[in-house]
Design a binder for these strands. Sequence first.
DNA 1: AGATGAACATACTATGGAGTATGTTGTCAA
DNA 2: TTGACAACATACTCCATAGTATGTTCATCT
Lengths: 231, 231
Amino acid sequence: MTSPAKPHRYRRQQDSQLSRLEILKGAALCFQRHGFAATSLDAVAAAIGSTKGRIYHHYASKADVFFDVYRAGMAANFEAIEPLITAAMPPGDRLAAMCRAHVMSVIRTQPFQKVVAEGVELMRRSALPAREHATLEELAGLRDAYAEHFLAALQAARRSGDIDFLTPKIALNQLFSALNGPITWYTPRPGQDDAAISALADECTSYSLRMLAHGGQTPVPGAKARPQNKV
Amino acid sequence: MTSPAKPHRYRRQQDSQLSRLEILKGAALCFQRHGFAATSLDAVAAAIGSTKGRIYHHYASKADVFFDVYRAGMAANFEAIEPLITAAMPPGDRLAAMCRAHVMSVIRTQPFQKVVAEGVELMRRSALPAREHATLEELAGLRDAYAEHFLAALQAARRSGDIDFLTPKIALNQLFSALNGPITWYTPRPGQDDAAISALADECTSYSLRMLAHGGQTPVPGAKARPQNKV
DNA sequence: AGATGAACATACTATGGAGTATGTTGTCAA
DNA sequence: TTGACAACATACTCCATAGTATGTTCATCT
């Protein structure tokens, strides 16, 4: 700016969309590791070997980047289950296939799904600046529509006698808690091929599905009253 | 300071421990809602009708407050399962009782458990200033010891034929993901008495335990390869 | 009754980071 | 070949907030 023109090296993407995608990947990794608030756009820029100016050229604000990562994560999920919601299948099989597809998507796009999870939490306590309120509702709509597909599959599978549960909302919440477990604890291994990942997803899906299997009301011992926690 | 002495009203706690507890509760609520990074100590102070000076009188830093909330949350959990790890019970019953006790503790101390969850995430990517490193290891030790109790109960219950699972680590992780589900989605209702909460905990525990029930390897349809996600 | 220290409140400093303003380079159209 | 604009980089501003320094009140001991 003030100094005489040095021969800087400007790295330019021919395709603007590719540049945005690169930003999204870097942002997803940073957001996954440190969360939205603790992530600086300088850190995101450094992660992709760039500067903040590039990000602000493509996005209006830090929140906009976050929202776009969220959209990409949800898009991956929708894409994963889309062929299953219209296919002709027994209800039990459809639910199982949807769960399996969701787990695979979660593992493959883990950083993005972490952002989705944080975004969902963000919406719980709303009270946001009104400017972003419209976007928040859009993203909440995406999540609700996605959950609705699983709720419908859940109800259908129960009607057909494949699974059993008490309260739909609780069953759905607990199912997602299990299916999304790998978001938190999964760490990609160096020598882990697709077969190993597939086996891991199978095991997670299997556990999650058993949550809703038949088995009567297992009475839980120790369910009687115990002294109240102090804290 | 500069102005002449006005007759201020100082609210003082006779018991220092009570004051710390009040700070912890307010901090837990703020941390739950906005996370560690997005929570200012001014906000915490305002939540308890106080000022930042009071917090810094009891704690050396914002992180120290966070760590103490974490300790309180873990203490509540330990206290909940403690009588069950030594009691004479069949392994299956012990595991069930421990799960049920954990869920109840989670629901009762939800804000604290959210902090515990964030703390656990924090430790995954360590790389912290060395000053807090010792404390981090202490807290990680607490978590590991707690998980170890459940892992032992898991193994014992499998040996006795009460449950079945493949990989212990995955089973344990998925179990905790389910048991900790209410941390994320539970919201206390106004007219919700202890009986209602107990019923809710029962349902959550029931689902979580079924994850590890027998049932053979349910083959998941749609487990064959599908097109890779783009993102 | 006065001294001392704990338990706060108030007022200040310092810094990281969001956002902006502007400079620089490549590319394509005409 | 030269605008003109897109795609960046650089260099700033400015505010929120962590942390500090200091003032104030009360209780307790002697």
